[in-house]
Simulated assay, not measured.
Amino acid sequence: DRRCVSIDRIIKIIEESMSSKVYGLLKRPDEALVVSRAHSNPKFVEDCVRTMAQKTVEAFSDLPDDAAVTLKQINEESIHQHNAFAERTATMGELRAELACLKA
């Protein structure tokens, strides 16, 4: 049983899980706004993946427990000599159970 999910919903979940909206190109005055937003809502890559998991479970509540989900966040660093990476692969059932434990 294959079900399709909306790529637009997936993109919205990803964008809403970040510290600030990401832009491909910014003018200098806009950079300050993005930095300010990111600093007022700081998140590590692990925080973004956790937020994506929560929003995915909420947005796709109709998916069966055995539906596979891979959540991944990579922050390409400009200051450090390494990138930050977090990934979670699970079934919807596993994510639902984990999130239920967090709420309890």
Rank of each mutant, 00 (worst) to 15 (best):
K12D: 11
M18H: 07
D65A: 12
R50L: 06
E15S: 10
K103N: 13
S61P: 00
V69L: 03
E76C: 06
S40C: 08
R9T: 12
A67W: 04
L71F: 04
D62I: 00
T51M: 05
V57C: 04
L25S: 07
E31Y: 01
S36Y: 04
I74K: 08
M52I: 08
A90H: 01
N83I: 05
S40N: 13
F60R: 06
C4F: 13
A97V: 08
K43S: 11
E31P: 01
Y23E: 11
L33H: 07
L102G: 11
T89D: 02
S6F: 05
L99E: 03
Q73H: 07
R2S: 11
E31G: 02
L102V: 00
V5Y: 00
V49Y: 02
M52Q: 10
R37D: 08
A38W: 04
I74A: 03
R28A: 12
H82Y: 15
D1G: 15
D8Q: 11
E98V: 09
S6E: 09
P64K: 12
R37Q: 12
D30L: 14
T51C: 06
E31W: 00
V45E: 03
C4A: 15
A59P: 06
S40A: 14
E87A: 11
R3A: 15
K103Q: 13
I14K: 01
K12G: 08
M92F: 04
G93L: 08
L95I: 07
P64A: 15
N83Y: 05
E98Q: 15
T91N: 04
A104H: 10
C48R: 01
Q81G: 15
K55Q: 13
R37N: 13
R3G: 12
V69K: 02
I79N: 12
T70H: 04
S78P: 10
H39C: 10
D30C: 14
A59W: 00
E31F: 00
A38I: 09
P29Q: 10
F85A: 07
I14M: 14
L25D: 04
P64L: 12
V57W: 01
Q73G: 05
K103R: 15
M18P: 05
T70E: 07
C101M: 13
A32G: 04
E94P: 01
R9V: 10
M18S: 08
R37L: 06
H39T: 09
R28M: 07
K12Y: 07
L26E: 05
S36A: 09
N75A: 13
R50Q: 12
R3E: 14
D66P: 03
I79V: 15
T70Y: 01
I13A: 02
A53Y: 01
D65I: 08
L95W: 01
A90G: 03
I13Y: 01
K27D: 03
V22C: 11
I11E: 08
I10L: 12
